[in-house]
Deep mutational scan, measured.
Amino acid sequence: MKKYKITVYDEKTGEKHTIEIEMSEEELEELAKKLAEKHNVKVRIEKV
């Protein structure tokens, strides 16, 4: 498992949230996809 920083940005409201999380790359990609689809936000992932 690796550490990642996830930034979620909502273009409508301008809200931006960043968290650090430790998980596998596959789980992370699935999480990012679900966030983007369900909440209509942009998701950026960076390795820490």
Rank of each mutant, 00 (worst) to 15 (best):
E26L: 14
A36V: 08
V41T: 10
A32N: 05
K12G: 08
A32V: 14
N40K: 06
E22C: 14
E29C: 15
A32M: 14
K2Q: 14
K2G: 08
K5L: 06
E37G: 13
I6L: 05
K42T: 13
K12R: 11
E11I: 14
K2V: 13
K5H: 05
I21S: 03
A32G: 06
V43H: 02
V48G: 04
K34D: 06
A36T: 11
T13M: 03
K33M: 09
K34R: 10
K16L: 14
R44C: 14
V43G: 01
E26V: 12
S24P: 08
T18L: 06
R44E: 11
M23P: 00
T13G: 04
K5W: 06
I6Q: 00
D10W: 10
M23T: 09
H39P: 15
R44L: 14
Y4Q: 00
T13W: 03
D10N: 15
H17W: 15
E26G: 10
L28T: 04
I21Y: 05
I45N: 01
E20S: 05
L28C: 11
V8I: 13
K12D: 12
M1R: 15
K2D: 08
L31P: 00
A36L: 12
E30L: 12
T13P: 00
R44V: 15
K34W: 15
Y4S: 00
E27C: 05
S24Y: 14
E20R: 05
S24Q: 08
L31S: 01
K34P: 00
H17Y: 15
E37A: 13
E11D: 07
R44T: 15
R44A: 06
E27N: 07
H39I: 11
I19N: 02
D10C: 14
K2N: 13
K33R: 11
K5Y: 06
L28H: 04
R44M: 14
K47A: 15
V48R: 05
N40Q: 08
K42M: 06
E15R: 10
V41N: 09
H39N: 09
E22W: 14
N40S: 08
A32P: 03
K2H: 15
E22V: 09
I6D: 00
L35Q: 01
D10A: 02
V8H: 01
E46P: 01
T7W: 06
K42W: 01
E11N: 08
E25I: 08
I19H: 04
K38D: 10
G14L: 04
G14H: 05
I6M: 03
E15Q: 10
V48E: 05
G14N: 04
E26T: 11
K12V: 12
K16P: 04
G14A: 02
H17T: 10
E15M: 12
L35H: 02
E30R: 12
I21L: 12
E29H: 13
K33N: 07
V43W: 03
V8T: 07
S24I: 10
N40M: 08
T7N: 02
V8S: 02
K34I: 10
E46N: 04
I19Y: 15
I6K: 00
T13C: 04
V43P: 02
T18H: 05
I45F: 05
K34A: 10
H17E: 06
M1W: 06
H17S: 08
K3R: 13
E46R: 04
E25D: 12
A32K: 12
R44H: 15
N40P: 04
Y4G: 00
E29F: 14
H17D: 03
T7M: 05
E37S: 13
T7A: 02
I6S: 00
K38L: 15
V8D: 00
E37F: 06
K5Q: 04
K12Y: 09
T13Y: 02
K33E: 06
E22A: 06
M1T: 10
E29M: 13
E37N: 11
V41Y: 08
V48W: 01
G14F: 04
D10Q: 03
V41H: 06
D10V: 05
I19L: 08
K33D: 04
V43K: 00
A36R: 14
T13Q: 02
E26W: 14
K2M: 12
K47C: 13
V41P: 03
A32L: 15
I45L: 04
E27Y: 05
D10S: 05
E11W: 12
E29A: 10
Y9G: 00
E30H: 10
V48I: 12
T18F: 06
E15C: 10
E27Q: 13
K38H: 10
Y4R: 01
E20W: 14
E27K: 08
Y9P: 00
E20Q: 05
K3V: 06
T18M: 07
I45A: 02
V8C: 12
E27H: 08
K34S: 09
M23Y: 03
G14R: 04
E29S: 09
T13R: 03
E22L: 10
E11R: 06
M23A: 13
N40G: 14
M1K: 11
K33S: 09
N40T: 06
D10L: 04
M1Q: 08
K5T: 06
K42Q: 10
E15S: 07
E46Y: 01
M1P: 06
L35F: 11
T18N: 03
K16H: 12
K16T: 15
T13N: 05
A36N: 08
Y4P: 00
I21W: 05
K47R: 12
K38V: 10
N40V: 04
V43N: 01
N40F: 06
T13E: 02
K34E: 07
T7H: 09
E25T: 07
E25C: 10
K3F: 07
L31Q: 02
A32D: 03
K2R: 13
H39F: 05
E29V: 11
L35N: 01
E37Y: 05
K33I: 08
L28N: 02
E46L: 02
G14E: 02
K2I: 12
E22R: 05
V48N: 03
H39A: 12
L28V: 14
L28K: 03
E29G: 09
E15N: 07
M23W: 04
K16V: 15
V41E: 03
G14W: 04
R44N: 08
N40H: 14
K47S: 13
E37V: 12
E22P: 01
K42C: 14
E11F: 13
V8N: 00
S24E: 10
M23L: 14
L28S: 04
K16C: 13
L31H: 04
R44Q: 11
K38F: 11
V41G: 14
E20M: 12
E37R: 13
L35R: 01
A36M: 14
E15D: 07
K12N: 11
V48S: 06
R44F: 14
V8A: 02
Y4T: 00
E15V: 09
V43S: 02
D10G: 01
L28D: 00
D10F: 11
K12I: 13
M1H: 09
M23H: 02
I21P: 00
D10T: 02
E26D: 13
E26N: 11
